[in-house]
Nucleic acid binder design. Structure first.
Length: 272
DNA sequence: AACAGCACCTGTAGGC
DNA sequence: TGCCTACAGGTGCTGT
């Protein structure tokens, strides 16, 4: 569910909420929520005073004063909330109680979300590509790609760039005027440049709007995102393109829906 | 290497 | 109303 902008929004709020607080107890309602050794997870985290909260790709990282580090991945429907409402109650998977009595709940309808302990921050989340928030980075990555995979698949590959999901991949490709099936290695210099700018731009705009809420996503403060009002292609199958009026199409690429304007995004097609 | 298919899970929307 | 199907913002595994 949440992609980089949603996770970034949550992390910013989490910093204000839990830094300098000490975990008093942890209650687990769905054991598979914790990856790895559950006993050690509990042992290392109880008594932990939170020193920092970080984002890496779609991971939330929490660091203790002693360097203890754990991550939260929300996957499709996970969320962190301070206050539980009635609907959340049945999907409660884990609860942190802090020494001052405040609580942090991990709620996750589909049970895909995971918490995991790491040896330290530096050893967490191995295999993730660089952050896609500045054009320089995206430019460098695109330039060195030697793959025939569709550019849409490449954008979704967390080992290549970390944090882009299905919504923002589609939106960035629209902004760059590139067809999602275009083979990554055949993007010319101009297309690489357009995509290098559009990926960070789309993500930063979405962060500024606190992310995109389509159904489940809520911020820590239980707010909706605002970016869903600004989507050009995602979820707009059959609706007219805002630029040219052509109906937006949907196809499947690697099992994921891809939305695009067949007229504005002809670039790259038929020239592979 | 890279793809499809499936697994993990539950909820919701739409068709009949 | 109820049943059935398709689909969902993610990732990881297996087989080909």
């Amino acid at each position: 569910m949440p992609e980089l902008p949603e996770v970034e929004t949550i992390v910013r709020q989490l910093r204000r909420q839990i830094i300098d607080r000490t975990i008093a107890s942890i209650r687990v309602f769905w054991p598979r929520t914790i990856e790895g050794n559950k006993t050690e997870f509990r042992r290392r985290l109880c008594g932990l005073t939170v020193a920092g909260v970080w984002r890496r790709g779609k991971y939330i990282g929490v660091e203790g004063e002693d360097g203890t580090f754990f991550t939260v991945h929300l996957r499709m429907t996970g969320k962190l909330v301070g206050a539980l409402d009635t609907a959340d109650r049945r999907h409660l998977r884990l609860r942190f109680t802090f020494t001052d009595g405040t609580k942090l709940h991990f709620v996750d309808a589909r049970k895909f979300g995971r918490l995991r302990l790491w040896p330290c921050r530096g050893e967490s989340c191995p295999g993730l590509g660089p952050e896609p928030l500045c054009p320089e980075t995206v430019r460098r990555v695109l330039k060195h790609l030697r793959t025939n995979r569709p550019v849409k698949s490449v954008l979704l590959d967390q080992a290549i760039l970390a944090g882009i999901g299905n919504i923002y991949a589609d939106e960035a490709l629209f902004l760059a005027g590139i067809h999602p099936l275009t083979q990554a290695a055949v993007l010319n210099a101009g297309q690489q440049e357009l995509l290098s700018r559009s990926v960070p731009r789309i993500l930063k705009l979405a962060i500024g709007r606190r992310g995109t809420t389509l159904r489940n996503y809520r911020t820590l403060a239980d707010q909706s995102g605002g970016n869903q009002e600004h989507l050009n292609v995602y979820g707009r199958t059959g609706a007219p393109c805002f630029t040219c009026g052509t109906p937006i199409e949907r196809i499947r690429i690697n099992g994921r829906s891809s939305h695009f304007c067949p007229k504005c995004q002809r670039s790259g097609v038929g020239r592979q």
